[in-house]
């Protein structure tokens, strides 16, 4: 029974236009980069004059793109190790503080989540100074340690959320039936929180692959990381291979995301 007044019409238009603009801004750039990656041209001109796989061939050439390949494998290795170690440490920590209402638990929780809001660039410099004062030479292991600190909160947060949603009655039942704590964890808690852990690991892995602030200070010419190398390429020549890297990364992320969605309902989790 609502009449459309002038003010309601302006509201609908304002919301509709801004939302449309939002979708355009979100999707447009990704679409444009993918289109550009298939160009035949030497420049990043859009729209591309003709389509080809020229820059993908260039990117996969083992000789001409050797540096990029090394950086890519370094990034994958660091992300994999940091996520694996981060998963074990974060799940244990989440188990320790979940369902505890004491101030000490809240304090620990805030501490474990703090790398999410503190500027990681400040941390990157701090880590560089720390390792240099300790006399530790730069290596991939240092990058793993640095990334670990920054990405562990993602896993901690999703695991904690899963643990809070867990029905405590299940654990009581298993305990009253004589199950040990470890057995109850393995057979009841772990299967139920596994999707939360997986979602956290996915975000952690992606954010390590994407990390700039820590890698910027801890990576060297020998231990190059993909985002830093791409930054270098952007600052110097605006090589079209960057668009091809983007295409490959977007495809890889898309596949990972669809797999994760099947496994854990990631998109449902993200929308609450």
């Amino acid at each position: 029974m609502q009449r459309s007044t002038f003010s309601d019409i302006t509201y609908k238009w304002a919301v509709g236009l801004l939302a449309g603009l939002g979708i355009l801004i979100l999707v447009g750039p990704v679409a444009i980069v993918i289109a550009t990656s298939f160009t035949t041209s030497q420049t990043l001109r859009f729209p591309p004059p003709e389509l080809s796989l020229r820059w993908y061939r260039e990117l996969f050439d083992p000789v001409r793109s050797a540096q990029i390949h090394i950086a890519a494998w370094n990034s994958v290795w660091v992300a994999f190790c940091a996520t694996a170690v981060g998963m074990v440490l974060s799940v244990l920590a989440a188990l320790a503080v979940a369902r505890v209402s004491r101030p000490s638990a809240r304090l620990l929780e805030a501490g474990f989540l703090s790398p999410l809001v503190l500027p990681t660039l400040s941390y990157g410099l701090a880590a560089l100074m720390f390792f240099s004062v300790m006399g530790i030479r730069p290596s991939l292991n240092l990058l793993i340690a640095g990334h670990l600190v920054v990405i562990a909160p993602f896993i901690f947060r999703t695991t904690l959320a899963s643990l809070t949603q867990l029905d405590p009655g299940l654990l009581e039942a298993s305990q009253s039936l004589g199950a040990s704590r470890l057995y109850a964890f393995r057979r009841i808690t772990l299967p139920l929180i596994a999707p939360g852990i997986a979602a956290g690991c996915f975000l952690a892995f992606i954010s390590s692959m994407d990390n700039v602030p820590v890698s910027l200070f801890l990576s060297t010419a020998r231990t190059g990381m993909l985002p830093i190398r791409m930054w270098g390429m952007m600052e110097s020549t605006l090589d079209v291979r960057i668009a091809a890297i983007a295409g490959v990364l977007i495809l890889a992320t898309l596949v990972l995301m669809l797999v994760m969605d099947r496994l854990t309902g990631l998109t449902k989790r993200m929308s609450g």
Partner: peptide, 16 residues
Amino acid sequence: MPLLTSVVIRTFAWIV
């Protein structure tokens, strides 16, 4: 989608 595309790539997109 953009959240999961590298920040470097998103920046690169805006240069284009």
